[in-house]
Design a protein around this nucleic acid. Structure first.
Lengths: 254, 254
DNA sequence: ACAAAAGTGTTATCCTTACACCCATGT
DNA sequence: ACATGGGTGTAAGGATAACACTTTTGT
C-alpha cells in the first residue's frame, strides 16, 4: 500500500458512511469456465472480493459501480444486489490487524475506521472475462481473475458471499442478460449451451436446449461456421436485441 | 413520546451501529384480507413501518426479531431479508425535523443521530393477524393493523418497501410457511385457496387448486364441516407437519 | 324439488424428457 | 466410406387450464 495514498484516504474518510460497506462478486466467463474477480493483499497473503465504502453523497447502487471501478478498473453494465451480510462475527480482526501492522498504520482515525464493525451489501455481476482487464487500486492492491474452483481462502465471510451469489445467479438466471454480454457477436448453439451449463453446473440435453432457445425467438440465424472440423458445420447465431430486451423482463430460458 | 425514555435512548445510542437501520414489512392475514403492521407517530400525523437499529453486539437478523418485538410486541417465527435500501434521497428530513420539534428534542447527540443518513435493511414476515396484538413501544408510539389497500402515506421510502416486499412474497410464496401459521388448526380447502388468492392477487381455479394441493400430500382430511349452509359440507383439513417441513425446502404450491 | 357450493372427472394443450434418426463435413 | 458432431423428429409422461358433471346439504 502506498503511504501517500493512505494520507489521502484519511482525509477522505469523513466523506464516507461509517459502518456500511459493499462487496462485489464479479463472475467472469470464458472458455467454459467461471472465474472470480479477486483482490490480492500483501503480496498474495490475503484475498478478498473487491469492496469499498459508500460516499455520503451517492446512492448505494451508484456506490457499487464506483467502488468496482476504483478497485479494479472494471465498468460493468449491471450490478445486482443479492444479499446483505450483518453477522456479528463476520468481521475477522486478524486480517484487519495484520494489514494495519504490515503497513505500519498507527493513525487512530484510520485504525478506528477499519476496526469498526461493517454491515456489507453484496452485489453480483456476470461479465465476459476476455473484455475485462483487472487493474490496481490507489493503494497498489491488484485484482485478478481466479478460476472459481481454485479459489484460495478469502477473508472475512467473502467465501460465503460467493456461495450465496452463485446460488442467487442460478435462480435468477432467467432474468440476467446472460447471453448478449458474455458471448462473441456471433456464436454457435453449442457455445450458448455451454454457457448455461457452466452457470447452472449441470448438463443440458442438446436437442431440447436448441429447440427451447429457438422457440424464444431471440436468435437470428446466420451463415454456417466452417471451422474445418470433420463434421456437419454448425450455424452461427446472434441475438435479436429488440426481442431480447422484451423477453428479459419476463424471464428467458431455464 | 415520553421524555424519560428519550434520556434513556440517549444513553443507549452508543450501543447501536450508526447509519444502519432495519424496517419490517409485517403482513397480517385474516378473513380474505391483508393488513400491514403500521406504527403511528404524533397522534396519527405520520405512519411508518416498525423499524429500528442494530446493536453492536448482535447479528443483523437477530436485530430484526428484537426490533420488531420492542416496537410492537410481536414475536414472529420467521423474518426474511428481502432488500436493502440506500438511495441518497430516501431520508426525508421533513419527518425527522417535525418529530424533533414536536417533542422538543434539542440534545445534539440525539439530533445528530436521527439526522444522519441511514441505509436500511428490509425484512418481511407473514402472520396470522388474529394471533397478533400490536402494542406500543417505549416511546409511546402505537402500532396497529391497517388494511393493505387503505394505507395512509408512509414516511420516507416505506411505501416503496411495502411494494418491494409484496412482490418478493409473490415470487417466494412457494418457500414461505404460508399455510401452517396463518390458518386455524383445521380449515377448508376454500380457506386455503382464498389465502393463496389474497397473496397472489389473482383468482385460482377451484378444481385445479384442490387437486394440486391434495397431490402435494401435505394435508390430512378430517370430518366434514357442517356449518348449516344449504350445500354440500366441505371437508376440514389440517397440515401434516412432517411432510410440510419436508416440502418447504423444495417449494410448495404455486 | 331446488339452489348453492363442494367434490370429482374429462379433455385439450402445452411443456419436459429422453432418445432416435438423418445430415453435412473433412479425412 | 466413415467417423464426428449438428440439426431435427418423435413418443411418453407430466403439468396446466378450462370446464362439465355429480354429490351433498338446508330450505
Amino acid at each position: 500500500m502506498k503511504a501517500a495514498n493512505i494520507n489521502l484516504l484519511k482525509e477522505q474518510l469523513p466523506d464516507y458512511l461509517p459502518g456500511v460497506s459493499l462487496d462485489c462478486v464479479i463472475l467472469g466467463y470464458q472458455n467454459q469456465n467461471l472465474s472470480l474477480l479477486t483482490m490480492q493483499w500483501d503480496q498474495g497473503n490475503y484475498f478478498s472480493l473487491p469492496g469499498g465504502f459508500i460516499r455520503r453523497d451517492e446512492d448505494l447502487s451508484m456506490a457499487a459501480y464506483r467502488v468496482l471501478e476504483e478497485r479494479t478498473g472494471l465498468k460493468v453494465p449491471m450490478l445486482t444486489q443479492f444479499e446483505t451480510f450483518g453477522e456479528i462475527n463476520r468481521n475477522d480482526r486478524s486480517f484487519t490487524n495484520h494489514i494495519l501492522k504490515r503497513f505500519n498504520i498507527t493513525d487512530p482515525k484510520i485504525k478506528d475506521w477499519f476496526e469498526q464493525r461493517f454491515i456489507s451489501v453484496g452485489f453480483i455481476a456476470l461479465v465476459d472475462k476476455e473484455q475485462c482487464t483487472p487493474g490496481s487500486d490507489m493503494f497498489g492492491n491488484t485484482s485478478s481473475w481466479i478460476p472459481i474452483d481454485q479459489l484460495p481462502p478469502l477473508i472475512l465471510d467473502h467465501q460465503e458471499m460467493v456461495t450465496s451469489a452463485r446460488s442467487f445467479l442460478k435462480k435468477q438466471l432467467n432474468y440476467f442478460p446472460v447471453g448478449s454480454a458474455l458471448l462473441d457477436e456471433k456464436f454457435t448453439m453449442k457455445d450458448l449451451q455451454i454457457l448455461y451449463e457452466t452457470i447452472l453446473e449441470k448438463p443440458l440435453d442438446r436437442a431440447n436446449f436448441q429447440k427451447r432457445m429457438l422457440k424464444l425467438d431471440i436468435l437470428i440465424r446466420h451463415e454456417k461456421k466452417m471451422d474445418g472440423g470433420a463434421y456437419r458445420a454448425p450455424y452461427l447465431y446472434s441475438f435479436n436485441p429488440i426481442r431480447y430486451r422484451e423477453l428479459l423482463d419476463r424471464g428467458i430460458g431455464y
